[in-house]
Design a protein around this nucleic acid. Structure first.
Lengths: 340, 340
DNA sequence: TTGTACGCGTTATCAG
DNA sequence: CTGATAACGCGTACAA
């Protein structure tokens, strides 16, 4: 349990600590002979460099903080996976924080990560960032570069990488309209959430473009969870006039919607079309398989890390990066049933 | 971007650094007057303690390393969630490493975490730990306490917290037998993986107890992924004599199995019963909903962290902790169809 | 109750 | 090419 220090190694090798450091980091010169002596001593002492001390000396930790709203959502799990993998390639480690969608925890974690001197922070699923002004976010950004995933804030030190959710929702809506659907309900997520608003915007603009009426019944806000989708579908089912298609703002809610529908004997897609967004792993394995919008999460994670590292290296990347989306057509969507 | 140090705060407050430290950490005395002066200076300087320097001085990082085999598996996502939440309660942060089931990466991460001087390491889904002797694991454990989740190794510095998977599998098998099933296929996971072996043991012992024959056809090894379950089910379907029930070693494979079955027109559970293990979120929302074994992952994560912290605090917990499991009966299981 | 000075393990500068 | 030595920012005896 007692660990060797660089001094121990230096003594054992009969050299100075600077030499050991140089050899280990391949910085500066070192004769082949001393190099060998040092490596032997390292081996002998079972020496492992203390990254904490290194961080202190170099004022850089090789740590990136990742703040996520809900790791239980496969979308974010996949994002974390991509972030971690890309960080690993670049010799960064991640400190993971999960806020459970709590704004307060988000705030705490930002401070904690700052105290831990992470070199950058990647924040995904931040609640209510878009419209409402988040003082703590801006403040944190003055000390640590922040990369927002799927959000966008126009401020110093805050950078964003997003999927083109508006376009994706627009395409999806046009696809539904192309299938003959005219009464489509969009199950939106949290109101003050950028992705919610973007997808809603895409939905509305497609509806308008095709001259379809959009009333208050056509948009319902929910919470991005299965249970929320379920409850919303139940509400919809109590209506006199049912829509022929439901477009949920994420797959989790779509799954909840399908569940409620099926429990009420509504066959998908024969009687009702259901589509989602995110293309989580399980959307392929629901019954019927779910038509959805794919976001290339791997790319999303990769780019956010690239941006973080660029910032760390003092480069100034574009403040806003956009990733394309595409529609995945499966079996939960079909032609609108001809109403009597 | 320039951060204040404790010295800056001390100067501003007109006190010594020790006083600032004492005030901020509530250690030692400090008059109300100086306390106030210090707090004002902290505010004025926008001071955030440097945890890196603190770690170096105290030889403790408040960091726990988490090594996971597959964060994309909802079981592990849930585990991470629990681990992170519990760590947070105890003022620990986590460095997350995902091995993608690579033994080599696991090895690398162990070293990296050790260099980062994490106070403990929680390892879940470690590949092939049980039987084959893992030198690097034992070596790492001599420097950093290691907690194995769902694995068990009897060695100095290695502690384990497991679910009683054997019992769970035993109960599940008895449940199936109780439904009249006699020809049951167990789709196992990776052969050299403790959970695989435990569930297999439970399966076998229940079959034996009830005098049911178990041939080579009754156990098939796969890979814990949806695709693996799918492929395995396809294999099974090509047989002359089909089983009446399939018990997959995790829910992911069970989902793959159900998918393959349904694609071939086999109605679940009328023609075939399918059950899994893990009770991941989605097992409730498959069609039909999946009968499975619940593991109380939250408790699993919580206990692993508690054990880690106990070890950090120099306590010596039991080397092995066990968490109970229970069967969740849903709609994918039913009475064995009466064969002609 | 408060301040000084040292140690934590590295890196980096600067003579040699 | 190599070796002292001064930072890095904090906690903490120890002294006052």
């Amino acid at each position: 349990m007692v660990r060797a220090t660089i001094t121990d190694v230096a003594k054992r090798a009969g050299v100075g600590v600077a030499t050991v450091s140089r050899v280990l980091n391949d910085s500066g010169y070192a004769s082949e002979k001393t190099r060998k002596k040092v490596m032997e001593a390292v081996e002998y002492c079972d020496y492992e460099p203390n990254l904490i001390a290194k961080s202190l000396a170099q004022k850089s930790t090789s740590l990136i903080g990742v703040v996520i709203s809900d790791i239980l959502n496969p979308f974010y799990a996949k994002l974390i996976h991509a972030i971690q993998a890309t960080c690993d390639e670049h010799k960064y480690s991640i400190i993971l924080c999960n806020t459970d969608e709590s704004k307060e925890k988000e705030r705490e974690y930002l401070g904690l990560l700052s105290s831990n001197r992470v070199n950058a922070i990647i924040l995904a699923g931040g609640r209510g960032i878009g419209e409402s002004y988040n003082n703590h976010l801006l403040e944190a950004a003055r000390k640590t570069p922040i990369i927002l995933v799927n959000e966008s804030v126009n401020a110093e030190g805050i950078f964003c990488v997003c999927c083109d959710k508006e376009k994706g929702a627009f395409q999806m809506t046009e696809y539904l309209i192309g299938l003959g659907h005219r009464n489509i309900v969009h199950v939106a997520g949290y109101p003050n959430f950028k992705p919610t608003q973007e997808r809603l915007a895409g939905f509305l603009s497609a509806m308008h473009k095709h001259g379809l009426p959009v009333g208050t019944d056509n948009v319902i806000y929910s919470d991005y969870h299965i249970s929320g989708g379920y409850a919303t579908a139940c509400d919809i089912l109590s209506r006199d006039v049912l829509p022929t298609a439901i477009f949920a703002s994420n797959d989790l809610m779509a799954i909840g919607v399908m569940n409620a529908l099926q429990e009420n004997g509504i066959v998908i897609p024969d009687k009702m079309t259901v589509v989602g967004s995110d293309n989580i792993l399980f959307s392929e394995f629901t019954t019927p398989s779910l038509t959805t919008i794919d976001h290339d999460v791997a790319l999303l994670g990769e780019h956010s890390v690239r941006m973080a590292i660029a910032l760390i290296n003092g480069e100034i990347p574009h403040r806003h990066e956009m990733i394309d989306t595409k529609i995945i057509i499966r079996k939960s969507s079909g032609k609108a049933k001809v109403t009597a």
